[in-house]
Design a protein around this nucleic acid. Structure first.
Length: 274
DNA sequence: CCTGAAACCTGTCTGC
DNA sequence: TGCAGACAGGTTTCAG
């Protein structure tokens, strides 16, 4: 899926509008179209179709990888998973892979396009209920190096899968986790409790810097999922298997951890036991 | 508690 | 050219 920077980029685009499309804020719903039933996680298709028309968009939010569109009565929450995307257009007919559309009185259409059909949408009164199990935002001011280190110490898990666990920390996916671990000089298979206080502090900083960079470049566009961002041009290890490490020149390795392709530099990210 | 496999899907790329 | 298999930005569930 899109990870935190991609979701944040979409949130900003929908909020401010672009040269091609207006802001979604203030738009009033005329009707909805559900093109793939399983995309709607809640409520029933009938209730969804009945509930949304007439409601106006008040604002947009994001929590981890969830995008929240606040309407006058309800909130429409999206999780884009692997291939989801959201955008405004004037097209009257659904595009290939459009799964859910919200048609506004103005004629503009919000389309949820999702090739792999893993994405989900919820229309709820209170998004908090849906999001309560999520770990802290990486940028939360309440999360400091000491606190982060303490939480790492309470777990006996490989650091990479732990960072990707949305109950532990929200927003990181495969790309940004590999990039952050490289930046922090930490081997992805290190056990979480084995990190020193200094390493934990450096890791949290690296996570924040990596996400900021991603957002600054409007996220990453890879494979056939192009969203206009260009952070993919700044990957240091992700998808760089066989290439020279930008820091030391040693060959970037690829292994599998937690069923996910994992890229790192053996020299810059040495494996250390406890 | 922790790890790995499988499931949910479609599309692309690689190798025979 | 054709086809099988691997792999892909994620999450959940289940077995061991």
């Amino acid at each position: 899926m899109p990870e935190l920077p991609e979701v944040e980029t979409i949130r900003r685009i929908l909020t401010t509008g672009t040269e091609e499309a207006p802001s979604i804020i203030g738009q009033c719903v005329r009707t909805t179209e559900l093109l793939w039933e399983r995309t709607l996680a809640y409520p029933s298709p009938e209730e969804f179709a009945r509930e949304l028309p007439g409601q106006q968009v008040l604002g947009l939010g994001r929590r981890g990888k969830f995008l929240i569109i606040k309407f006058s009565q309800d909130s429409l929450v999206f999780h884009l998973r692997m291939s989801g995307d959201l955008g405004m257009s004037l097209v009257s007919e659904p595009a290939r892979h459009d799964r859910l559309r919200v048609i506004f009185e103005s004629g503009w259409v919000l389309s949820f396009n999702d090739t792999r059909k893993f994405g989900r949408a919820w229309l709820v009164k209170d998004p908090e209920e849906l999001l309560e199990g999520l770990g802290p935002e990486p940028t939360s001011v309440e999360l400091d190096g000491v606190c982060f280190g303490r939480r790492l110490g309470q777990k006996n898990r490989q650091i990479k899968p732990l960072l990707m666990d949305q109950h532990f920390l929200s927003g990181l996916g495969n790309i940004y986790t590999d990039e952050a671990l490289f930046r922090a000089g930490i081997h992805p298979a290190r056990l979480s409790w084995s990190l020193s206080e200094g390493e934990a502090e450096r890791l949290l900083e690296a996570i924040r810097e990596t996400l900021e960079d991603g957002i600054r470049h409007n996220g990453s566009s890879i494979d056939w999922v192009y969203r206009g961002g260009n952070f993919q041009n700044y990957f240091r290890v992700y998808q760089q298997t066989g290439n020279a490490c930008p820091v030391c020149g040693q060959t970037i390795q690829k292994i599998v951890l937690g069923q996910r392709g994992t890229h790192f530099c053996e020299h810059c990210q040495p494996f250390k036991k406890g």
